[in-house]
């Protein structure tokens, strides 16, 4: 089914939630100090996104239009609580490192945005595929930024030393800045620049309206 496949592949780069739709940026920046937290967050967000899209799509004909936002948020919040409790039970160290950001999946505009824009209007099958695609697109950026920041900031990937630092007799001088907040903004900025230079159709021709504004309206 090529149409179903395009639902998964389109959000990977062309309609990427972070670099194109500006959805879910907050957590993408915060949890990418290392590859392990980025992977954990990607898994958590993708599973919440798929489950919430499936449930909301199943209930879409029964949710009254006026209170749909509250219903959606309650469904998402319940799923996030489940994920949060699971994570505290089976990956306690990582859940400490992610601190409040797992809870903040509730207000992650990506989850609510897909629920509102897609799952409320489409049957279950396409909704799950759309959620999976967007979750993977989000994960792609997170993993990329997480690898860059951990590699340049600590010289390791997933805790395994790749570039031997000077302190251990190697040549690599870890860039402390990479572990700090400003680096996350700058790396995502450069990434967006690279993507838009390669796929020039994504570039903003005029300085007026950004896609984010269209989404916000």
């Amino acid at each position: 089914m090529p149409k179903g496949l395009s639902r998964i592949t389109a959000p990977l780069i062309g309609q990427n939630p972070i670099t194109r739709q500006i959805l879910g940026v907050c957590s993408a920046l915060a949890v990418t100090t290392g590859l392990d937290t980025a992977l954990m967050m990607s898994a958590a967000l993708t599973s919440v996104l798929c489950l919430s899209s499936a449930i909301i799509s199943l209930l879409r004909n029964h949710i009254p239009h006026v209170i749909r936002l509250i219903v959606q948020i309650t469904i998402i919040a319940s799923l996030v609580i489940v994920i949060d409790e699971l994570m505290q039970a089976f990956a306690f160290e990582l859940s400490r490192a992610l601190s409040v950001f797992v809870g903040l999946i509730v207000t992650n505009c990506l989850v609510l945005g897909r629920a509102e824009a897609f799952a409320m209007r489409n049957p279950v099958g396409p909704s799950i595929l759309d959620a999976l695609g967007n979750g993977l697109g989000y994960s792609l950026i997170l993993i990329l930024v997480g690898s860059i920041r951990e590699l340049l900031g600590q010289g390791s990937l997933l805790g395994v030393v790749v570039l031997v630092p000077v302190a251990d007799g190697g040549w690599f001088e870890p860039l402390g800045l990479m572990q700090l907040a400003p680096a996350a903004f700058i790396i995502i900025g450069l990434l967006v620049w690279a993507i838009r230079s390669y796929w020039t159709d994504q570039a903003e021709t005029t300085a007026q309206a950004t896609p984010g504004e269209q989404v916000a309206r």
């Binding site: 907040a181 903004f185 700058i186 230079s197 570039a203 300085a207 950004t210």
Partner: peptide, 17 residues
């Protein structure tokens, strides 16, 4: 062209941060 809008916004936020 590729830097207009979002990319420049991220870079400026980085410097501000």
């Amino acid at each position: 062209a590729g830097m207009r809008g979002l990319a420049s916004a991220f870079l400026v936020t980085g410097l501000l941060s």
